[in-house]
Nucleic acid binder design. Structure first.
Lengths: 128, 128
DNA sequence: TTTATATTTCGCCATATAGCTAATGCATCG
DNA sequence: CGATGCATTAGCTATATGGCGAAATATAAA
């Protein structure tokens, strides 16, 4: 086994992934919820293509995982405990932003989206 | 006191600061050493102005502190324990990169720079 | 098979970022 | 004072990044 590891690239990839407000808002929303892309789009108010790209970056960094079910893809926080770096980053994000104002507002909007979601799913604009 | 804090901007600023290879290399070098800009320049092989800008970003994020002494400015890791976010970030960087190959090589070069530094300080190119 | 819907990929644009050189600040030394 | 030297700031360039809309993909529904 090599004496020194090559942690740099992995570290930078994760750090870049969490160095964007939209992406940490996604991570905060996914903390405790499994969500499809359209639900995240509703809360963030960004174009689906933009959210999809953000999710791709988060997934590649090992921070989230996707699960396909029918037409939808459900994303959740990655819990592969073997990926220590990703888990540390996730812990830092959640600890730091749990009580942040933006995070709280997103969670409030998310609850509304989840409520209407039971009947009519995506392509539905949440009021207020 | 407000119910919710505004951690987002501070968090993003710190995350962006550590999402760059040159800057985390600087943080690793400063871990345990107090260094002047010219010493960091020697090890990184970047232009002084570039290193200065990086240090400015790190300082503004609360990750390093500068101390002026004559013509030199010595930088060190910030130890203001009140800044929890910065301290968490520093801990993450140091834990993750302590055994990284690039970090080890930088430390090796730094030792050489520190050795010659005793007699003739900056404006001195370290061999090899 | 055709239509509809969810997501991704592609192509584009505006801004941000990291690097450089040159110029400026500022302190020391002759 | 003037010259020297460390660090920063200013100005520039090339690349990276985040946003969008349009087109492509894939699955469900009609």
């Amino acid at each position: 086994m090599a004496k020194y590891k090559n942690n740099m690239n992995k570290f930078i990839e994760i750090a870049k992934a969490i160095a964007d407000e939209s992406r940490v808002r996604i991570l905060s929303m996914l903390n405790g919820h499994e969500l499809c892309v359209c639900q995240i789009v509703e809360v963030l108010g960004l174009a689906p293509s933009t959210v999809s790209k953000h999710l791709s970056i988060l997934r590649h960094a090992g921070l989230v995982e996707g699960r396909k079910e029918g037409r939808w893809i459900y994303y959740r926080i990655s819990n592969r405990s073997s990926d220590i770096e990703a888990q540390k980053a996730l812990a830092w994000v959640h600890e730091s932003l749990a009580r942040d104002g933006q995070t709280q507002e997103d969670l409030r909007r998310l609850k509304a989206v989840l409520k209407i979601g039971k009947e009519m799913l995506c392509a539905q604009v949440v009021q207020e």
